[in-house]
Nucleic acid binder design. Structure first.
Lengths: 146, 146
DNA sequence: TTTAGTGCAAAAGTTTTGCATGGTC
DNA sequence: GACCATGCAAAACTTTTGCACTAAA
């Protein structure tokens, strides 16, 4: 095995260059802050963490960066009940999310086999499916114990 | 067949009484406005439509009513990419949503058979699944033709 | 009559935008 | 060196809250 590319997270600079945008200090900082977060975070939360870490980043830049990265598919945008928009640095492969309703822990679910059902169901209504996402909510083992 | 209860939408008053809240004029108006909308709508949109229809309803009441009805499960709350929170009066049965990315038409998808997959996947990570929702995005026949 | 619900307006957030300046490629 | 990206601060929105008043049960 020559490389352990499979699960190794790509470096921020590579992710940015990969989608044809400039690898600025601020964008790298946002990606690194996301990499530190196991779950997800809102734009404002990320801004506050970067500031308290001493990074001189502007709020507008955080919003602009997250929108850009989300559009480019570099990060995932997930919305919780109530409409709160959060971001997360996930694997590049197709996956879904399992979140704990108590502690908001997020786990990626691989092995989605919904493609056929989605295409068929969409076609039954005259639609051509382009994407789908599943959000599973539950209670994690820690919270169940508590 | 004595009744055609199956697909007949319940009257606003019944829906409200059914979850133990008062059937006020404003709540009935919000439900009726939702019933006129085939797709989904934001709180602010519903407020504007009711106002232009001559209903003297307050913005805060619309927000409070939609939150209440959503919590009670009387209406569905769906979030589109970008975090926009919309509401829709759907059937009571478990279902998912298929939306057109062009015209935002919404269709209910019945016959969800994801229960087993969801439980199994959640259990594999130590979670107990409590709910799940699928959002399928595609292009409807009209928009594909255009 | 009692208590829940409403309207209004103010406040509290959140997100976007304009424009001069600074940093990448 | 050209052009993209940033910071700041103001503006634009969206959503929530307090409180006196009204209406449902």
């Amino acid at each position: 095995m020559a490389k352990t590319q499979a699960q190794a997270p790509a470096a921020p600079g590579e992710l940015l260059a990969g989608c044809g945008v400039r690898a600025t200090h601020q964008r790298v900082q946002v990606l690194e802050e996301l990499a530190r977060e196991a779950n997800d975070a809102t734009a404002y939360q990320l801004f506050e963490r970067l500031r308290s870490r001493g990074e001189g980043i502007g709020l507008a830049t955080v919003y602009r960066t997250l929108s850009l990265l989300s559009e480019q598919g570099v990060i995932d945008a997930l919305t919780h009940r109530g409409g709160e928009l959060c971001y997360r640095l996930c694997s590049a492969a197709h996956h879904h999310h399992l979140t704990c309703s108590e502690c908001h822990r997020v786990v990626e679910l691989d092995g989605c086999n919904l493609g056929d059902w989605v295409s068929t169901a969409a076609a039954a209504h005259g639609f051509t499916a382009t994407e789908h996402q599943v959000e599973v909510v539950g209670v994690c083992s820690d919270c169940r114990a508590a």
